[in-house]
Design a protein around this nucleic acid. Structure first.
Length: 433
RNA sequence: GGAGGGAUGGCAGAGCGGCCGAAUGCGAAGCUCUUGAAAAGCUUUGGGAUGCAAGUCCCCGUGGGUUCAAAUCCCACUCCCUCCGCCA
């Protein structure tokens, strides 16, 4: 969440920054009002508490001195103060809860250099790599223009019908080399980042508080799977447990940046996107993803953001896929994001750019929710950390693009050399006779 | 699932209604001594709210309650340990 103190001291700037997102600002105004009211109440409450503390101490002293009459009079005084205190206390708590709930819903301030825009349509494309000047529509041969769901079915590596039988639509089954390929992609992504990131295998069912720390709750409850009986949520991304790994901790500056990576299944209800881009592997409820994540000082954040992007980009490039980097505009930025870059690969069979990675900087928005701070090496007050993360590789769409791009004139599929070490000696999939 | 025991500062650990934001030890930082180091001695050393500051207020797993007063008593929850049961 955003810093209340900034809301207080720098209200116009906060309001202006949030306006760039194109959101309704009435909640922001209401939060500022509530904060003022809350602080007034706190001052009155603490004053009353102080009175009561003093009187209570005097009672103890009087008792010990054997002055029963004085103790009795003081007790009456304390009770009177207590009655007013109870009232003030109740109002204060109510204001505090209301403010806290409101703050959880206010999105992060976009970074100054995030491009302005109202929607996805306004996201500038920073660069296109791998088409060598060719247009995406003309850069591929006819045999590559077969969608992956058709290739997958004919080669027996993707079984959507039986997935639907087991779990419903948008739950794909990978088979044979298709399953091997899915696993190979994860292994490749982990290996490419193991030089600097600690591999973590976290739980994929988490508590409500964990999902709140990263910003998915309370606003996006409908997008996540929830297990009522145990009150646990299925993670939509490894970002959720990895960010909470250091929750409520004060880190030493020397520990930063903390670099973590994890390969986990990800679960998404896709409640709001029924019917949109749902063919094949374009949108699925369960998929594997390798996430890379960092906790940094504010000063380290910009360089880390660039590094995460370079790493995610490097893996896509190593797979020989054409891709473009999109700078997410303020109107399309996720609620917790300050700045975000998407990597989109071109899938010639679908004829679409597919978002395969989102590399984001959260400033201190998540860290404040998760209460992750650090103590500066020079000493002094603790400071909120910054968090960043990106998909090092999300399986389904990369799988789809690879199968489409790799399709040969005879219907077989060839895989890039970077994957060969992970395919048990195979370099592709033969066409079926 | 059942029965017990526990949760206190960076760590260990005392306190079990007021004199406790909290003894003591270890660790860490600074100073003295020393050519330097070790040893020894002295000092400092949790987080947060508010305030220019002095200060005031809150935090002893979390949330409620009892009391003039709660780390301390009561209730619920979470987590850890031991035992029994069940089970991949």
């Amino acid at each position: 969440m955003i810093d209340v103190r900034r809301l207080r001291d720098d209200f116009d700037a906060v309001r202006h920054a949030l306006a760039r997102r194109g959101i309704d600002l009435s909640e922001v105004d209401r939060a500022a009002d509530l904060d003022r009211r809350h602080r007034t109440l706190v001052m009155r409450r603490d004053e009353l508490r102080g009175q009561k503390n003093t009187v209570s101490k005097d009672i103890g002293a009087a008792r010990r001195a054997g002055e029963a009459a004085r103790a009795f009079a003081l007790t009456a005084e304390s009770t009177a103060v207590g009655e007013e205190l109870d009232q003030v206390e109740a109002t204060t708590v109510a204001a505090e809860r209301e403010l806290a709930a409101l703050l959880l819903r206010i999105p992060n301030l976009p970074a100054d250099d995030a491009p302005d825009g109202a929607s996805e349509a306004d996201n500038p494309v920073l660069r296109v790599v791998g088409l060598d000047g060719a247009d995406a529509t003309s850069g591929y041969a006819e045999h590559q223009r077969v969608p992956h769901w058709e290739i997958g079915a004919s080669l027996g590596i993707l079984d959507l019908e039986r997935g639907a039988r087991i779990s419903g639509s948008m739950f794909p089954v990978y088979r044979g080399m298709g399953a091997t390929l899915a696993r190979a992609l994860c292994q490749l992504a982990l290996d490419r980042n193991a030089d600097a990131f600690e591999e973590v295998r976290p739980p994929t069912l988490v508590r409500t508080a964990t999902l709140q720390a990263t910003g998915q709750l309370p606003k996006f409850a409908d997008d996540a799977y929830h297990i009522e009986r145990d009150d646990l949520w299925l993670i939509p991304t490894a970002e959720v447990p990895l960010t909470s790994l250091r929750r409520n901790e004060i880190l030493a500056e020397a520990e930063l940046p903390v670099r973590l990576m994890g390969c986990t299944p990800c679960y998404r209800r896709e409640a709001g996107s029924a019917g949109r881009d749902t063919r094949g592997l374009l949108r699925v409820h369960e998929f594997d993803k390798v996430e890379i994540l960092a906790v940094t000082t504010p000063a380290q954040a910009a360089a880390m953001h660039a590094e995460l992007l370079a790493r995610a980009e490097g893996t896509i490039a190593a797979l020989g896929l054409a891709y473009r980097i999109v700078d997410i505009s303020t109107g399309d930025l996720g609620q917790s994001h300050a700045r975000s870059f998407d990597i989109e690969v071109y899938a010639p069979g679908c004829g679409m750019w597919l978002e395969v990675s989102s590399v984001s900087w959260f400033s201190d928005y998540q860290a404040r929710r998760a209460n992750i701070r650090y103590r500066p090496a020079a000493g002094g007050q603790t400071i909120m950390c910054h968090t960043l993360n990106g998909s090092a590789l999300a399986v389904p769409r990369v799988w789809a693009a690879l199968v489409e791009v790799g399709r040969q004139p005879d219907g077989s599929v060839a895989f890039p050399a970077a994957l060969h070490p992970y395919l048990r000696g195979a370099t592709g999939i033969a066409a079926r006779v």
